[in-house]
Structure formats: structure tokens, C-alpha cells
Simulated scan of single mutants.
Amino acid sequence: MTRVCGTPAVCAHLAPAQQEQSQYGGAEGEIEGMAIVLGETGVDELSEVVGVLREWQYDGASIQLHPGDLGWFWRFGAEATAATVRTWSRDGQTLAVGLQDHPKLLRLTIAPDAQRDEELAQQLVEDVTKPTV
């Protein structure tokens, strides 16, 4: 079981990433019919994830995961880094990025414009609290 700490601090348990659609709907600002998808990151996608994290940084931001964290983890190799990164997206737009920094710790950052996305919050909780299969 993995402890999850994000923005704001959220603690739960993480199950392996699975491609699933959200069962929650109707959140304010939600695009009807667009599901939130939990994805694993491939080696070829790491640079894109680092770029997304870079775009989300700004002075005063309370970010629990930033590009340098992935760079630091990269010392173990691209494959090891990719195996620890998860993304949550809707309609091709990344909404959150997580890095399993330790077997019992997931560092999580949410896109600035998705901080109050109720559907995303519900999906994150659902995904990280699923029992490990």
C-alpha cells in the first residue's frame, strides 16, 4: 500500500495504474462525456511530462512534484523513471502527474486550472484507494 501526498495534502493508497473511465460526472466546468484516464508513462513520454510540470510552475505555487524531481529520479535510468510516473488526463489534456518516489509515497501535482475540479478529485481518490490486485 502506498501513501499519497499531493496538493492539497491527500493521503490514501495507490493501486497499479489502470486505463479506466471516471464514473463521476456533472462537476462544474466538466466537459460532458469526457472521462478522466489514469495512464502509465512510457520512456518516450517522459520529456513531455517534464514539460507539463514546467508549465505548471509559477512563483508562489504549492507544487509537490516539479520537473527537477523527475530529473533527480532519472539517475536510476529512463525505464525506472517511466515505471514510477502516472498521469491523469481528460480529452488528451494532462490534469495531474504522480511520481511514486518510494514504495509507500506518491508525490502528486495537479494542474493549476484543475485545482478545484471535483471530478478529478474524486477520480484521484478512487484510483489511489483501489486494492492492489
Rank of each mutant, 00 (worst) to 15 (best):
I110F: 02
G29E: 00
E119I: 05
V52L: 02
V50W: 04
G68C: 05
P16K: 01
E28V: 05
D44K: 09
L14N: 02
F76K: 15
G42V: 07
Q23T: 01
A96W: 05
S22V: 02
L53K: 14
E55C: 03
H66L: 08
I110M: 06
D101S: 07
W74H: 12
A9Q: 04
L65D: 03
Y58A: 13
R116F: 09
R90H: 05
E40T: 12
V52P: 03
S62T: 15
A17N: 04
W72G: 07
G29H: 04
P67A: 06
Q100C: 03
D59Q: 14
G25P: 00
V43D: 09
D91Q: 13
E40R: 15
C11Y: 09
R75F: 13
A17M: 06
H66Y: 12
A111F: 06
E20F: 00
E32N: 00
D91A: 15
Q100M: 05
V85L: 12
Q93R: 15
V50K: 11
T81M: 04
L70Y: 07
R54T: 12
H102C: 12
I110H: 02
D117M: 03
A27Y: 07
V10R: 08
R90Y: 05
H102K: 12
V37C: 08
W56I: 09
F76L: 15
V52K: 10
Q100G: 00
D101A: 05
E118F: 02
G39L: 05
G33C: 02
R86G: 00
I36Y: 04
V50C: 10
A61C: 13
T87E: 06
E20D: 08
S22P: 00
V52G: 00
V97H: 10
F76M: 13
D113P: 01
M34R: 11
T84I: 05
R107S: 13
G60Q: 11
A12Y: 10
T94F: 11
V85G: 05
W72Q: 07
Q64F: 14
W74V: 06
R75I: 13
R75V: 15
L105Y: 15
D101T: 09
W88K: 11
G98H: 02
Q57K: 15
E55R: 10
I110G: 03
Q64S: 12
Q57E: 12
Y24G: 00
R107G: 07
A114R: 15
R116S: 08
L14V: 10
G51W: 02
Q57C: 14
T87F: 02
A35I: 04
Q100N: 02
